[in-house]
């Protein structure tokens, strides 16, 4: 038995395809699947959200809102904003939520609508407010989200996606990360319509509460151009570009014949 030294001509154990091609084919198919699920979820959410009662929503939110409660800061603002929101709700809306405002220490100029009527407002936003009307507008805007139940739509979709991706990929975080990026981007463009609707709702409330709509656009005009994209909320990143938003607001004010003057100052306790 003699030995004949020879080397194989080709490497049979490695498939001769380009890795880049494999990468793009896989990534694109995954994206396609995600988009299809996303669209289907949109329909599903539209079906389900109107059927969730406020009661059930409140109960479900109790679970995670406890951790939010712990981070609330105690300031003069708290009592004031709480009574402001309750006043707006009682006088001008029929929203069935037990609204509770949480004031949180953060530089982000933002307010968030969480399920169960929990509105979180950051001190960054409060620090930039100059009149009560402005603040009322910001809260009325969040109430607009509750009225349209946008908060459930956003949360519901994100929740389903997170569940699916952890179920499928478990500890493998690469894919979940990529999904999260893709979601964030689409979520941005998706919520524009909802923001505009919430703005219109807020104008009605403002007019009902004060008999005018002064201060509705003040805040937007004063916003610094370099908004940091923020962490969770995107209060302004996801809101239509400020200029567009201001002109939309002005158009509604003109169409409905709202009075644009008559500001009410902030109470003394919160003026520093």
């Amino acid at each position: 038995m003699k030995y004949t030294p020879r080397l194989p001509k080709s490497n049979v154990n490695v498939t001769p395809t380009s890795m880049l091609r494999e990468f793009f084919v896989l990534t694109l198919s995954l994206l396609a699947i995600v988009i299809v699920i996303y669209i289907l979820l949109g329909f599903a959410v539209d079906l389900i959200v109107p059927r969730i009662s406020t009661d059930l929503e409140t109960k479900m939110s109790e679970l995670f809102i406890r951790s939010v409660d712990a981070e609330d800061i105690d300031s003069e603002w708290r009592g004031y904003v709480q009574s402001l929101v309750e006043d707006l709700q009682k006088r001008c809306t029929k929203l069935p939520y037990p609204f509770k405002v949480h004031v949180r220490e953060a530089s982000s100029v933002n307010a968030l609508a969480f399920p169960g009527g929990h509105i979180i407002v950051f001190t960054g936003l409060l620090g930039k407010i100059t009149s009560e009307n402005e603040l009322a507008f910001a809260f009325a805007h969040e109430m607009g989200h509750y009225a349209n139940r946008d908060h459930l739509r956003g949360v519901g979709r994100a929740f389903v996606f997170i569940t699916i991706s952890t179920f499928l990929f478990g500890t493998d975080s690469n894919i979940s990360q990529m999904l999260a990026h893709a979601l964030n981007i689409t979520e941005l463009s998706f919520s524009r319509k909802q923001e505009t609707r919430a703005d219109a709702f807020a104008l009605d409330i403002l007019n009902c509460a004060y008999g005018n709509v002064a201060g509705a656009t003040d805040f937007l005009k004063r916003l610094p151009k370099e908004q940091d994209p923020g962490t969770i909320g995107h209060y302004f990143a996801s809101h239509p570009e400020n200029l567009k938003r201001i002109s939309d607001l002005n158009k509604i004010i003109r169409d409905k014949g709202f009075k644009p003057a008559g500001k009410k100052p902030l109470p003394k306790i919160v003026q520093q």
Partner: peptide, 13 residues
């Protein structure tokens, strides 16, 4: 009868 050999061969997937 084995008349000659060529060493190790392998396949994997």
């Amino acid at each position: 009868n084995i008349v000659e050999h060529f060493g190790l061969v392998s396949g994997s997937t």
